[in-house]
Amino acid sequence: MSEHAYKPPRVLIVAGSDSGGGAGIQADIKTVTMLGGHAMTAVTALTAQNTLGVQGVLPVPATFVVQQMRSVLDDLGADAVKIGMIGSAETAHAVADELERLDVPVVFDPVMVATSGSVLADAETIAAFERLMRIASVVTPNLPELEALGGEAAVLAHGCHLVAKGGHAEGYYVVDRVLAPNGEELARLEAKRFDTEDTHGTGCTLASALACGLAAGMSIEQAFEQAVRFVRIAILSAPGFGQGHGPVGHTLGHNPYEQLEG
């Protein structure tokens, strides 16, 4: 096997598939790739989904989710893990079992409701999130998810960092913060709120960007700043697809075909 000068950071993504390509595994792969990482996946659920909502969910058995994780970890390894839609309480515990033997950053995005409003986690699954929060290096809920988890203090009590996202709040500015396990604010970013509904996949994208930064050896503050910047540019680059909450533009407005013209 040849030696390569550059080794992309390896990010294992444990999440559900979005058939519309705006969120889930699809958004995760695009984000990690755009940030120079190597994306690997363990799919937890298949969804029939578009910008209008989720029309169907087919959970992947927990045993097969674990088999996917082991196939990746035993051969390719990982520098960070990103957890998104988990599918079931059984899968949450099975994934936790596998992650407990790893010593890499884990970013947990506790997906409960899609941007369209569709519910993606039942009460039993949300209860099982507590175990994943104890394993996670950082948890990235939106405001409704943070409230469902009991608030900032309840999340930080698990010993993880918290990225408190402000996208669901009111006001002219969006305020995103990183809190240490002891509650200390490590970083804060304030920026103008964009007047758009094309925000499908922003949560998945931010968590994957954060995981990729940590996998590359960045501090949590550096990875956070890179992730927020990437999401904001992606929102501005949204292609305008669909009749509902459209996907963000993971290619950041870049058209590769321009290089082929002439």
Rank of each mutant, 00 (worst) to 15 (best):
D176N: 02
G217K: 10
I233M: 14
M34Y: 11
D176K: 01
G117Q: 04
I126N: 06
V138Q: 09
M40I: 00
A121H: 11
L214K: 06
G171Q: 05
C212A: 15
V106C: 05
Q68P: 09
T33L: 09
A15I: 10
T202C: 14
L102E: 07
M40G: 00
V32A: 14
R193S: 09
Q259S: 14
T115F: 09
E170Y: 11
A78T: 00
A148G: 12
E170T: 12
V65D: 06
I233G: 09
D103F: 10
A39D: 02
L179S: 07
L73W: 04
A164E: 13
T202E: 11
A169V: 01
P110I: 01
E185A: 15
T196R: 10
V139N: 01
F64H: 15
G183I: 05
I220H: 08
A94D: 06
E147A: 15
G217Y: 03
V57D: 05
E221W: 13
C212H: 12
K7C: 13
S19Y: 03
V11K: 01
S137R: 12
A27L: 01
P141M: 04
G84W: 01
A23K: 03
V81H: 07
A180S: 01
Y6S: 05
N255C: 02
A123Y: 11
S116W: 13
L252N: 06
L214Q: 06
Y172P: 14
V138G: 09
F230I: 01
H158P: 01
A223W: 04
C212N: 15
R188H: 02
Q222E: 12
L260F: 15
D75R: 04
E3K: 13
V119D: 13
T51I: 08
A238K: 11
L214I: 03
L214P: 07
H4M: 09
A5F: 10
V163K: 03
D79H: 09
H200W: 11
E190A: 15
I135E: 07
I220K: 08
T140Y: 02
A114C: 12
E124D: 15
A89M: 07
A114D: 12
F241K: 15
V178N: 04
V174Q: 04
V163H: 02
V174T: 05
D18T: 03
E100W: 12
G84C: 09
P59A: 10
Q259C: 13
S19I: 05
G249D: 03
V113P: 08
D18R: 05
F194V: 15
A45I: 00
